[in-house]
Design a protein around this nucleic acid. Sequence first.
DNA 1: AAATACTATGCAAAGGTTTGCATAAAAATC
DNA 2: GATTTTTATGCAAACCTTTGCATAGTATTT
Lengths: 341, 341
Amino acid sequence: MKKSRVTLTDIAKALNISASTVSRALKDHPAINKETKRAVVKLAKKLKYQPNLLALGLLQKKTYTVGVIVPEITGHFFSTVITGIRDVLSPAGYNIAICLSNESFQEEIAITEKMAKTQIDGVLVSPASSTKTYKHFKALQKNGIPLVVFDRDCPGLDADKVLVDDYDGAFQAVEYLINSGCKNIAHLSGPMNLSITEHRLQGYLDALGKHKFPVKQENVIHVSGFTHEDGIKPAQKLLKLKNRPDAIFAMNDCIAISAMHVAKKMGLQIPGDVSIIGFDDEPHSSYFTPALSTIWQPVYSVGMLSARILLSKLQEGEEEPELRREVFKPELIIRASSKAV
Amino acid sequence: MKKSRVTLTDIAKALNISASTVSRALKDHPAINKETKRAVVKLAKKLKYQPNLLALGLLQKKTYTVGVIVPEITGHFFSTVITGIRDVLSPAGYNIAICLSNESFQEEIAITEKMAKTQIDGVLVSPASSTKTYKHFKALQKNGIPLVVFDRDCPGLDADKVLVDDYDGAFQAVEYLINSGCKNIAHLSGPMNLSITEHRLQGYLDALGKHKFPVKQENVIHVSGFTHEDGIKPAQKLLKLKNRPDAIFAMNDCIAISAMHVAKKMGLQIPGDVSIIGFDDEPHSSYFTPALSTIWQPVYSVGMLSARILLSKLQEGEEEPELRREVFKPELIIRASSKAV
DNA sequence: AAATACTATGCAAAGGTTTGCATAAAAATC
DNA sequence: GATTTTTATGCAAACCTTTGCATAGTATTT
């Protein structure tokens, strides 16, 4: 049988006083007798009184809970962002409700609806790759729930945003490959319709363009997901081209690792025959053979800053200041999978 | 300004009926006029009525939220367990509140207290490595909150448990090393006081014992955490022993990778000079050079089963059936980092 | 002694929803 | 036409906490 918890009224009855007095005694209200206060505090401790946050939330229309919507958490990126979010929000007294959209637009909609019902205070979101419209986010905003978008942009949505300059990261990587003497640079690109995919692709294209390299259709392949398996076939396709690329810039480290794997199986030297650069700088990446060159992003900072911005919206209250758009710069980290320049 | 949401009463007023009628109309209550129902449903949709789950929770003492307490989520293990949990609980209509203890006993206590206050329905927990007593868990149970412990056992705590046979996994790994001809097998063990550490260590010891191998104090080193960095120094210490081990069984894959890294830097052949076996079978593990031999665990299943057990406690209600203790068997996966037998 | 200020407490409402009981109206039965 | 049944709706309580206002008693001032 579910034991009902100790309530204010229970304590009040036991001491023959009113619930209001008990509430005030526990809240350091000035107008309260020291004796009474002492008795209340003592009994509350004895009975292990725990205030019912539901009742409080109902009363104050504030739940001290922030929702975080991410596509997945099994990768390094989002789990680290979440850790950053937690490290800001938790000390501030906020709960975090982490929800996984599983890269599904439908699930994302279901999540936002549930969040509205649970009276969440604010939302941090990185949209699913299949998300096309932002009605569900706008609905949250209309409900007065502040929204911060991180990492994956929602073009056209008016919200605070914390992003990473994916374009710049890609540009750096490709330009480095060019400077190191690569002549035929391919790109394992991400799933279509995703802002980060597009920005990285554009960075790749523009770096080629800047150096007057021709862009070959066959040199760009979109992978369908972010895991190793998703990278194998596209990498094979690339490395079996008649005009085999001498460099691959991959969407992320997992895909880059797949490409390295395929290349090695084909007997190719890395970086002798083909240079490889990834994106994300996962913890494992420096331990591969050869150690993977990659683009580092301030992942933890993305989480912290997003949380801080949301927090300020929650606390400053309602004055609707101008929207913020923060863009972090990534850094190229050269290891052994790409030629020295 | 925080717009207050549409409530039952708002709809009631607009239609000149009572809130009870509106509630019933939206709930397919039998005794309700079709006309009325149609009107209510139509208006509710138009105004985008969202029931307030706080009020409901307060009334029914049920929040349809389950708390999940894990030490961290940046690794592969817990993030995958969580995905399994979600895939069971989400379709059943439950929310998941993921909380990170950060391997800290104190934070874990704070989390459980907060969970009691938020009237959570049930809890899934894998305790922090620094957790020594289980008072906080017992307090939850006393409050009538069902608790399921997964992966990391809490010896002496009466709760449902979903574990992996770490002892058996370790035993398999070490026995394999013995059978493959290794004579001097070391163990990079986990943080002290953690059930999985102890079980794996015992498996190591017993496998040696079974084959009449001497146990050398110097061959067992405890690492302080689960990341690559935590493994480097202990691995160096091990491989610089006068009597250098010809095999290392590591606490997990990250540590094993560190050991491989150190060994390679020292110019040792793997597995020629030293065999290495890890634990966890992370997605990356087969992509290292050489591909890492390891122990696979049914991580996703651990999550799913834990969630299913909790779910049955939540639904069956209160009859307190006997506690379940499910133990999954891990599997040895031999790749290239250990000699063939 | 009367008026004022202060201290300590209680009452009641509010927050949104559900539900048992009561009630009213309509329909069905005799 | 009177009684019973059915159908549709409303009232009010309950869930727990906070807080403005009122009140009663005590202490201070004039």
